Computed example of a mutant assay.
Amino acid sequence: MSTATTVAVALVLGGSFATGVLLVARRVPRWAAPTLSRRIAPYVRDIADPLGLTPLAPALPWVGWRARRDRLAAGLGANDALVRRLHKAGWSQDAVAFRAGQLGWALGGALVGAVLVVVLTLTDRMTPVAVLLPPLLAAAGAALCDLRLTAAARRRAARVEEELPTVLEFLALCLAAGEGLRDALRRVGEVGAGELTGEIRRAVLATGTGSSLADALGELSRSLDVPALSRAIDQLIAAIDRGAPLAGVLQAQAADAREDAKRMLIEQAGKKEVAMLLPLVFLILPLSVLFAVFPGVVMLRLGIG
Protein backbone atom coordinates (compact mmCIF):
# COMPACT_ATOMS: atom_id res chain seq x y z
CA MET A 1 0.00 0.00 0.00
CA SER A 2 1.49 3.35 -1.07
CA THR A 3 1.74 6.44 1.09
CA ALA A 4 -1.02 8.25 -0.85
CA THR A 5 -3.38 5.31 -0.38
CA THR A 6 -2.62 5.20 3.33
CA VAL A 7 -3.36 8.92 3.67
CA ALA A 8 -6.62 8.55 1.74
CA VAL A 9 -7.76 5.64 3.93
CA ALA A 10 -6.84 7.63 7.04
CA LEU A 11 -8.85 10.62 5.81
CA VAL A 12 -11.91 8.49 5.10
CA LEU A 13 -11.78 6.64 8.44
CA GLY A 14 -10.98 9.77 10.45
CA GLY A 15 -13.72 11.78 8.78
CA SER A 16 -16.26 9.02 9.37
CA PHE A 17 -15.29 8.71 13.01
CA ALA A 18 -15.40 12.48 13.59
CA THR A 19 -18.82 12.71 11.91
CA GLY A 20 -20.17 9.92 14.08
CA VAL A 21 -18.84 11.52 17.26
CA LEU A 22 -20.39 14.89 16.36
CA LEU A 23 -23.75 13.30 15.55
CA VAL A 24 -23.75 11.44 18.87
CA ALA A 25 -22.76 14.61 20.73
CA ARG A 26 -25.58 16.55 19.11
CA ARG A 27 -28.13 14.07 20.42
CA VAL A 28 -26.97 14.27 24.04
CA PRO A 29 -29.88 16.00 25.86
CA ARG A 30 -27.75 18.34 27.94
CA TRP A 31 -25.79 19.55 24.91
CA ALA A 32 -28.62 19.54 22.39
CA ALA A 33 -30.91 21.68 24.57
CA PRO A 34 -30.69 25.45 24.02
CA THR A 35 -28.79 27.38 26.63
CA LEU A 36 -30.40 29.72 29.14
CA SER A 37 -29.04 32.79 27.36
CA ARG A 38 -30.43 31.48 24.10
CA ARG A 39 -33.91 31.06 25.61
CA ILE A 40 -34.13 34.48 27.24
CA ALA A 41 -32.37 36.49 24.51
CA PRO A 42 -35.56 37.17 22.44
CA TYR A 43 -37.15 38.80 25.50
CA VAL A 44 -34.22 41.10 26.35
CA ARG A 45 -33.15 42.24 22.90
CA ASP A 46 -32.40 45.74 24.12
CA ILE A 47 -29.58 44.48 26.33
CA ALA A 48 -28.62 41.44 24.24
CA ASP A 49 -28.18 40.88 20.52
CA PRO A 50 -30.41 43.28 18.48
CA LEU A 51 -31.84 40.37 16.51
CA GLY A 52 -32.18 38.13 19.54
CA LEU A 53 -30.48 35.29 17.72
CA THR A 54 -26.89 35.12 18.91
CA PRO A 55 -26.45 33.49 22.35
CA LEU A 56 -24.63 35.43 25.04
CA ALA A 57 -22.44 32.55 26.15
CA PRO A 58 -22.36 29.64 23.69
CA ALA A 59 -21.82 26.31 25.37
CA LEU A 60 -20.49 24.49 22.32
CA PRO A 61 -18.19 25.63 19.51
CA TRP A 62 -20.83 25.13 16.85
CA VAL A 63 -23.50 27.11 18.72
CA GLY A 64 -23.78 30.50 17.03
CA TRP A 65 -22.45 29.21 13.72
CA ARG A 66 -25.15 31.14 11.91
CA ALA A 67 -23.84 34.46 13.18
CA ARG A 68 -20.28 33.53 12.22
CA ARG A 69 -21.50 32.40 8.80
CA ASP A 70 -23.30 35.71 8.27
CA ARG A 71 -20.22 37.69 9.23
CA LEU A 72 -18.08 35.66 6.83
CA ALA A 73 -20.65 36.02 4.06
CA ALA A 74 -20.83 39.77 4.64
CA GLY A 75 -17.06 39.87 4.26
CA LEU A 76 -17.36 38.19 0.85
CA GLY A 77 -19.36 41.11 -0.45
CA ALA A 78 -22.98 42.21 -0.07
CA ASN A 79 -23.04 45.28 -2.29
CA ASP A 80 -25.94 47.25 -3.70
CA ALA A 81 -25.73 45.50 -7.08
CA LEU A 82 -26.35 42.14 -5.41
CA VAL A 83 -29.27 43.59 -3.45
CA ARG A 84 -30.83 44.87 -6.68
CA ARG A 85 -30.34 41.50 -8.39
CA LEU A 86 -32.01 39.71 -5.48
CA HIS A 87 -34.96 42.09 -5.57
CA LYS A 88 -35.17 41.80 -9.35
CA ALA A 89 -35.30 38.01 -9.02
CA GLY A 90 -38.01 38.27 -6.35
CA TRP A 91 -36.01 36.38 -3.73
CA SER A 92 -36.86 37.19 -0.14
CA GLN A 93 -33.38 36.46 1.26
CA ASP A 94 -30.97 39.30 1.84
CA ALA A 95 -27.50 39.67 0.36
CA VAL A 96 -25.75 38.16 3.38
CA ALA A 97 -27.95 35.06 3.27
CA PHE A 98 -27.28 34.69 -0.45
CA ARG A 99 -23.53 34.93 0.08
CA ALA A 100 -23.83 32.37 2.85
CA GLY A 101 -25.68 30.02 0.52
CA GLN A 102 -23.08 30.62 -2.18
CA LEU A 103 -20.36 29.81 0.33
CA GLY A 104 -22.20 26.61 1.20
CA TRP A 105 -22.35 25.64 -2.48
CA ALA A 106 -18.63 26.29 -2.79
CA LEU A 107 -17.84 24.20 0.28
CA GLY A 108 -20.08 21.41 -1.04
CA GLY A 109 -18.22 21.46 -4.35
CA ALA A 110 -14.88 21.36 -2.56
CA LEU A 111 -16.10 18.41 -0.47
CA VAL A 112 -17.22 16.52 -3.58
CA GLY A 113 -13.85 17.21 -5.17
CA ALA A 114 -12.05 15.95 -2.09
CA VAL A 115 -14.13 12.76 -2.14
CA LEU A 116 -13.29 12.23 -5.80
CA VAL A 117 -9.60 12.71 -5.07
CA VAL A 118 -9.80 10.11 -2.28
CA VAL A 119 -11.63 7.68 -4.59
CA LEU A 120 -9.04 8.16 -7.34
CA THR A 121 -6.28 7.58 -4.84
CA LEU A 122 -7.85 4.39 -3.51
CA THR A 123 -8.27 3.02 -7.05
CA ASP A 124 -4.66 3.92 -8.00
CA ARG A 125 -5.84 6.34 -10.69
CA MET A 126 -4.52 9.47 -9.04
CA THR A 127 -2.94 12.02 -11.38
CA PRO A 128 -1.47 15.46 -10.67
CA VAL A 129 -4.38 17.10 -12.50
CA ALA A 130 -6.87 15.50 -10.08
CA VAL A 131 -5.52 17.73 -7.28
CA LEU A 132 -7.30 20.64 -8.97
CA LEU A 133 -10.72 19.01 -8.58
CA PRO A 134 -11.61 20.52 -5.14
CA PRO A 135 -10.93 24.18 -6.07
CA LEU A 136 -12.50 23.75 -9.52
CA LEU A 137 -15.68 22.21 -8.12
CA ALA A 138 -15.81 24.86 -5.39
CA ALA A 139 -15.64 27.60 -8.02
CA ALA A 140 -18.26 25.75 -10.08
CA GLY A 141 -20.60 25.57 -7.09
CA ALA A 142 -20.29 29.30 -6.39
CA ALA A 143 -20.77 30.10 -10.09
CA LEU A 144 -23.83 27.83 -10.28
CA CYS A 145 -25.46 29.67 -7.38
CA ASP A 146 -24.83 32.99 -9.12
CA LEU A 147 -26.21 31.63 -12.40
CA ARG A 148 -29.39 30.53 -10.61
CA LEU A 149 -29.88 34.09 -9.39
CA THR A 150 -29.26 35.52 -12.86
CA ALA A 151 -31.70 33.08 -14.48
CA ALA A 152 -34.37 33.82 -11.86
CA ALA A 153 -33.97 37.57 -12.43
CA ARG A 154 -34.23 37.09 -16.21
CA ARG A 155 -37.39 34.98 -15.92
CA ARG A 156 -39.04 37.47 -13.58
CA ALA A 157 -38.16 40.37 -15.89
CA ALA A 158 -39.77 38.48 -18.77
CA ARG A 159 -42.95 37.97 -16.74
CA VAL A 160 -43.03 41.68 -15.87
CA GLU A 161 -42.73 42.59 -19.54
CA GLU A 162 -45.62 40.27 -20.36
CA GLU A 163 -47.83 41.84 -17.68
CA LEU A 164 -46.92 45.45 -18.47
CA PRO A 165 -49.33 46.16 -21.39
CA THR A 166 -52.35 44.79 -19.50
CA VAL A 167 -51.47 46.74 -16.35
CA LEU A 168 -51.00 50.00 -18.27
CA GLU A 169 -54.29 49.57 -20.11
CA PHE A 170 -56.12 48.88 -16.85
CA LEU A 171 -54.53 51.97 -15.26
CA ALA A 172 -55.57 54.07 -18.25
CA LEU A 173 -59.12 52.73 -17.95
CA CYS A 174 -59.27 53.60 -14.24
CA LEU A 175 -57.95 57.10 -14.87
CA ALA A 176 -60.41 57.64 -17.71
CA ALA A 177 -63.19 56.63 -15.32
CA GLY A 178 -62.24 59.53 -13.02
CA GLU A 179 -60.04 57.89 -10.40
CA GLY A 180 -56.79 59.39 -9.19
CA LEU A 181 -53.45 57.82 -9.97
CA ARG A 182 -52.87 56.52 -6.43
CA ASP A 183 -56.37 55.01 -6.31
CA ALA A 184 -55.87 53.45 -9.74
CA LEU A 185 -52.58 51.91 -8.65
CA ARG A 186 -54.23 50.61 -5.48
CA ARG A 187 -57.05 49.06 -7.52
CA VAL A 188 -54.58 47.38 -9.90
CA GLY A 189 -52.61 46.03 -6.96
CA GLU A 190 -55.74 44.61 -5.36
CA VAL A 191 -57.11 43.02 -8.52
CA GLY A 192 -53.92 41.67 -10.08
CA ALA A 193 -51.93 38.65 -8.99
CA GLY A 194 -48.71 38.87 -11.01
CA GLU A 195 -45.18 40.02 -10.39
CA LEU A 196 -45.76 43.59 -11.50
CA THR A 197 -48.95 44.03 -9.49
CA GLY A 198 -47.13 42.79 -6.39
CA GLU A 199 -44.50 45.49 -6.87
CA ILE A 200 -47.27 48.06 -7.41
CA ARG A 201 -48.79 47.04 -4.07
CA ARG A 202 -45.44 47.69 -2.39
CA ALA A 203 -45.18 51.08 -4.09
CA VAL A 204 -48.68 52.05 -2.91
CA LEU A 205 -47.77 50.90 0.60
CA ALA A 206 -44.64 53.07 0.45
CA THR A 207 -46.77 56.10 -0.44
CA GLY A 208 -48.84 55.43 2.66
CA THR A 209 -45.75 55.46 4.89
CA GLY A 210 -44.37 58.84 3.88
CA SER A 211 -42.87 58.44 0.38
CA SER A 212 -44.16 60.51 -2.50
CA LEU A 213 -45.78 58.76 -5.42
CA ALA A 214 -43.02 59.81 -7.82
CA ASP A 215 -40.31 58.48 -5.47
CA ALA A 216 -42.16 55.19 -4.98
CA LEU A 217 -42.58 54.70 -8.73
CA GLY A 218 -38.94 55.61 -9.32
CA GLU A 219 -37.83 53.05 -6.76
CA LEU A 220 -40.08 50.48 -8.45
CA SER A 221 -38.43 51.21 -11.79
CA ARG A 222 -34.90 50.96 -10.38
CA SER A 223 -35.56 47.74 -8.46
CA LEU A 224 -37.09 45.82 -11.37
CA ASP A 225 -34.73 47.28 -14.00
CA VAL A 226 -36.98 46.43 -16.96
CA PRO A 227 -36.44 48.86 -19.89
CA ALA A 228 -40.08 48.97 -21.01
CA LEU A 229 -41.30 49.56 -17.46
CA SER A 230 -38.64 52.21 -16.86
CA ARG A 231 -39.72 54.12 -19.97
CA ALA A 232 -43.38 53.96 -18.94
CA ILE A 233 -42.66 55.16 -15.40
CA ASP A 234 -40.40 57.97 -16.63
CA GLN A 235 -43.14 59.18 -18.95
CA LEU A 236 -45.70 58.90 -16.16
CA ILE A 237 -43.56 60.88 -13.70
CA ALA A 238 -42.93 63.54 -16.35
CA ALA A 239 -46.67 63.77 -17.01
CA ILE A 240 -47.31 64.18 -13.27
CA ASP A 241 -44.76 66.99 -13.03
CA ARG A 242 -46.07 68.82 -16.10
CA GLY A 243 -49.78 68.25 -15.49
CA ALA A 244 -50.35 66.30 -18.69
CA PRO A 245 -53.38 63.97 -19.03
CA LEU A 246 -52.28 60.69 -17.51
CA ALA A 247 -54.84 58.49 -19.28
CA GLY A 248 -53.51 59.43 -22.72
CA VAL A 249 -49.91 58.91 -21.62
CA LEU A 250 -50.70 55.46 -20.23
CA GLN A 251 -52.62 54.45 -23.37
CA ALA A 252 -49.66 55.46 -25.52
CA GLN A 253 -47.27 53.55 -23.27
CA ALA A 254 -49.55 50.51 -23.38
CA ALA A 255 -49.54 50.62 -27.19
CA ASP A 256 -45.73 50.87 -27.20
CA ALA A 257 -45.52 47.94 -24.79
CA ARG A 258 -47.78 45.90 -27.09
CA GLU A 259 -45.52 46.69 -30.04
CA ASP A 260 -42.43 45.73 -28.03
CA ALA A 261 -44.09 42.44 -27.07
CA LYS A 262 -44.89 41.71 -30.73
CA ARG A 263 -41.34 42.50 -31.78
CA MET A 264 -39.89 40.28 -29.06
CA LEU A 265 -42.26 37.49 -30.07
CA ILE A 266 -41.11 37.75 -33.69
CA GLU A 267 -37.46 37.71 -32.59
CA GLN A 268 -38.05 34.64 -30.44
CA ALA A 269 -39.84 32.94 -33.31
CA GLY A 270 -36.85 33.63 -35.56
CA LYS A 271 -34.46 32.16 -33.01
CA LYS A 272 -36.65 29.09 -32.54
CA GLU A 273 -36.81 28.64 -36.30
CA VAL A 274 -33.02 28.54 -36.51
CA ALA A 275 -32.90 26.14 -33.58
CA MET A 276 -35.43 23.87 -35.28
CA LEU A 277 -33.18 23.68 -38.34
CA LEU A 278 -30.34 22.13 -36.32
CA PRO A 279 -31.88 18.65 -35.89
CA LEU A 280 -33.19 18.83 -39.45
CA VAL A 281 -29.77 19.54 -40.94
CA PHE A 282 -27.60 17.43 -38.67
CA LEU A 283 -29.94 14.49 -37.90
CA ILE A 284 -32.88 14.01 -40.24
CA LEU A 285 -31.16 15.01 -43.51
CA PRO A 286 -28.07 12.76 -43.00
CA LEU A 287 -30.34 9.82 -42.12
CA SER A 288 -32.44 10.42 -45.24
CA VAL A 289 -29.32 10.49 -47.42
CA LEU A 290 -28.02 7.36 -45.69
CA PHE A 291 -31.28 5.47 -46.27
CA ALA A 292 -31.28 6.52 -49.92
CA VAL A 293 -27.63 5.74 -50.70
CA PHE A 294 -26.88 2.72 -48.51
CA PRO A 295 -29.07 0.16 -50.42
CA GLY A 296 -27.47 1.15 -53.72
CA VAL A 297 -23.95 0.82 -52.27
CA VAL A 298 -24.79 -2.64 -50.90
CA MET A 299 -26.23 -3.75 -54.25
CA LEU A 300 -23.13 -2.52 -56.10
CA ARG A 301 -20.87 -4.44 -53.74
CA LEU A 302 -22.89 -7.60 -54.21
CA GLY A 303 -22.91 -7.16 -57.96
CA ILE A 304 -26.65 -7.00 -58.22
CA GLY A 305 -28.25 -4.82 -60.84
Rank of each mutant, 00 (worst) to 15 (best):
L116D: 07
A143Y: 11
G101R: 14
A153P: 00
G109I: 09
V131S: 10
L137W: 07
D70H: 14
L144T: 15
A81G: 12
K88S: 10
T121C: 04
W65P: 00
T121D: 00
A142D: 03
C145K: 14
V117K: 03
P134S: 08
A114S: 15
V129G: 11
G108Q: 11
L72D: 04
G108S: 12
A100P: 01
L86N: 00
A142W: 15
G77S: 03
G90E: 00
V129M: 14
G113L: 06
G141S: 07
S92F: 02
W91T: 00
L122E: 03
D80H: 13
G64V: 05
P135A: 02
L103T: 09
R85G: 03
L107Q: 09
R69V: 02
A97T: 14
N79A: 08
A153W: 03
V83Q: 11
S92E: 08
A67T: 15
V117S: 09
L120Q: 10
P135E: 02
D80Y: 07
R68G: 07
L76Q: 12
G104P: 03
L120N: 06
L133W: 04
L86F: 01
V117R: 10
A143T: 14
G108F: 14
G108Y: 05
T123Q: 07
L82A: 05
D70T: 06
R154V: 08
N79P: 06
V131P: 06
L132V: 10
A139Y: 13
V117Y: 10
A142N: 05
V118Y: 06
A74H: 08
L86Q: 02
W105I: 01
L120V: 00
L72Y: 03
A89P: 01
V118F: 11
V117F: 13
W91H: 07
T123V: 13
H87A: 13
T121H: 06
D70M: 14
A152W: 01
A81D: 15
L147Y: 12
L122R: 00
P135Q: 05
G113W: 06
T123I: 11
A74N: 08
R85T: 11
T123N: 07
F98W: 12
R154F: 00
T123Y: 10
A67M: 02
R85W: 10
L133Y: 05
L149P: 02
A74D: 09
H87S: 12
